[in-house]
């Protein structure tokens, strides 16, 4: 499938006399194929928003190349801007204008037909509140307005940065449906979010970024499979045999975590081997089930941002790709 968005070796460095140098983007790569919903994940401060801002010409990169819809950006942004709808970070609008005025002015600036204003207001559920000032809106309503402004151009590439922020459960579901419908209509959607359950539900593929570098990418199912680490749940016919089974498997080099009524095994490449190993010792398996990892655990594992009791993880403390060690990034790194 052809790529709508390609980023190669993108670099952005912030220099400060007092705080030294910080690589916000450190050779970041990304590829989004046409027509897919692509999730863009990363811990706070990992470079997600910097990537999006750089892509949209708001930040000047220090290196690398980017292309959108076959055009090199930022040079060709004036050509492709009409086909990119984007919201970056929290929605910001002039508080004293109504939603309709806000969209009307954007439509005027972008030479978009005025009928689109009503269409997108309907689409995001703001039709009946369009005449009210934005300052009276809740965060969720502002979020809907931001999405409406991004949809106004009827873009080929839709970039949504945290679109579910502030939305109520119904709103989140509506947003999910909207994104899927847009993708079904041929629109490519790049979705940045921290609600990983949502990403897993609606995205075809993902890119995970940590400290300015890509740590994982590909179709969601492949990323999950790749990082499941062979987790297997084992139950025995007789729960009293669990301690001896744990000892046996441990001796065989399998990582075992004992639970009250079952064992959790990690690093099992072939589950059948477990069954044979236990049967040889007269221990009979009543359940042997591979456990699929969810995106949240994969994310926490890949970025090393899982909370550790008694520790307070700092914002720039996450995985740096290449050495797979928890690195303390940030200024001076």
């Amino acid at each position: 499938m052809s790529a709508v968005l390609e980023i190669e070796g993108l670099r952005k460095t912030y220099k400060s006399r007092r705080r030294g140098t910080r690589n916000a983007l450190d050779g970041f790569d990304m590829r989004v194929a046409a027509g897919e919903v692509h999730g863009f994940l990363g811990p706070n401060g990992s470079g997600k928003t910097t990537t999006l801002r750089t892509l949209l010409g708001l930040i000047r990169p220090d290196g690398g190349r980017m292309s959108v819809l076959g055009h090199e950006v930022p040079a060709a942004l004036p050509v492709v801007a009409g086909q990119i709808g984007a919201i970056v970070e929290s929605p910001q609008f002039f508080p004293h204008f109504t939603a309709r005025d806000t969209l009307d002015l954007l439509a005027g600036a972008g030479e978009v037909p005025r009928r689109r204003v009503d269409e997108v207001l309907e689409q995001v559920g703001l039709r009946d509140r369009a005449g009210e000032r934005v300052k009276t809106y809740s965060l969720g309503m502002k979020q809907r307005l931001a999405v409406a402004s991004a949809l106004l151009k009827d873009p080929k590439l839709l970039i949504l940065d945290e679109p579910a922020n502030g939305l109520d459960p119904g709103g989140i579901r509506e947003m999910r449906t909207l994104v899927r419908d847009l993708a079904a209509g041929g629109m490519t959607v790049l979705l940045s979010s921290h609600i990983l359950g949502e990403i897993q539900l609606i995205c075809d593929s993902v890119t995970i970024i940590s400290l300015g570098r890509r740590v994982a990418y590909g179709p969601v199912s492949e990323v999950l499979a790749e990082h499941s680490h062979g987790s297997v749940r084992v139950r025995l016919e007789s729960p009293t045999d669990l301690p001896s089974a744990a000892e046996l498997l441990d001796r065989a080099g399998i990582k075992v975590t004992a639970q009250a009524d079952h064992l959790m095994l990690a690093g099992v490449e072939k589950p059948a081997m477990v069954s044979r190993l236990l049967a040889d010792q007269g221990l009979y398996v009543s359940e042997l089930a591979p456990v699929a990892a969810d995106l949240e655990s994969v994310f926490l594992d890949l970025t090393a941002t899982a909370p550790v009791p008694g520790q307070h993880r700092q914002v720039d403390q996450s995985t740096k790709v290449g050495d797979r060690e928890v690195t303390k990034g940030g200024w001076g790194a």
Binding site: L56, G57, L58, P74, A81, V88, Q92, L106, A109, K153
Partner: peptide
């Protein structure tokens, strides 16, 4: 508002 506008008119 300026950022929004620059997304439309880069």
């Amino acid at each position: 508002g300026m950022m929004n506008l620059l997304l439309w008119r880069p």
